[in-house]
Amino acid sequence: MSAPKPLGIILAGGLATRMGGGTGQQLDKGRLPLGGSTLLDHVIARLAPQVGAMALNANGDASRFADTDLPVLPDSIDGFAGPLAGVLAGLDWAAVQGATHVISAAADTPFFPHDLAQRLMDTARAESTPIALAATLDPKRGAMRQPTFGLWPVSLRDDLRAALNGGLRKVVLWTDQHGAALAPYAPDPFDPFFNVNTPDDLAQAELYLKDMS
Rank of each mutant, 00 (worst) to 15 (best):
A3E: 07
A3Q: 03
A3N: 05
P4G: 02
P4E: 10
G8S: 12
I9P: 07
I9C: 06
I10D: 08
L11K: 14
L11Q: 00
A12R: 05
L15E: 13
T17P: 06
G20F: 03
Q25W: 11
L27E: 12
L32F: 14
L34T: 06
T38I: 11
L39D: 00
L40T: 13
D41I: 11
D41Q: 07
H42R: 14
A45F: 07
A53G: 00
A55D: 01
L56A: 08
L56Q: 04
N57H: 13
N59H: 04
D61Y: 04
A62C: 14
A62G: 13
R64G: 01
A66C: 01
L70W: 07
P71Q: 03
P71F: 01
V72E: 03
L73S: 08
L73K: 12
D75E: 05
S76T: 15
S76Q: 01
G79L: 09
G79I: 08
G79K: 12
F80Y: 15
A81Y: 02
A81C: 15
L84V: 06
A85V: 10
V87Q: 15
V87G: 02
L88T: 07
G90M: 08
L91S: 06
D92H: 15
V96E: 14
G98C: 12
A99D: 07
T100G: 13
T100L: 07
A105W: 04
D108K: 06
D108M: 00
F111D: 00
P113T: 10
L116M: 08
L120S: 12
D122K: 05
D122R: 02
A126P: 00
S128P: 08
S128W: 07
S128F: 00
I131K: 08
A134V: 03
T136G: 07
T136Q: 02
P139N: 09
R145A: 15
R145L: 00
W152Y: 08
P153M: 04
V154Y: 02
S155F: 03
S155L: 10
L156P: 07
R157S: 03
D159Q: 11
L160P: 08
L160I: 09
L164M: 04
G166N: 04
G167L: 15
R169C: 12
V172R: 14
V172T: 13
L173A: 02
W174F: 15
T175Y: 01
Q177K: 00
A180W: 14
L182Y: 14
P187W: 05
P189F: 09
F190A: 11
D191V: 06
D191P: 12
F194K: 13
N195Q: 12
N195Y: 09
D201S: 11
Q204S: 11
Q204P: 09
A205K: 09
A205L: 05
L207G: 08
L209Q: 14
K210I: 03
D211M: 13
S213M: 09
S213G: 04
S213F: 13
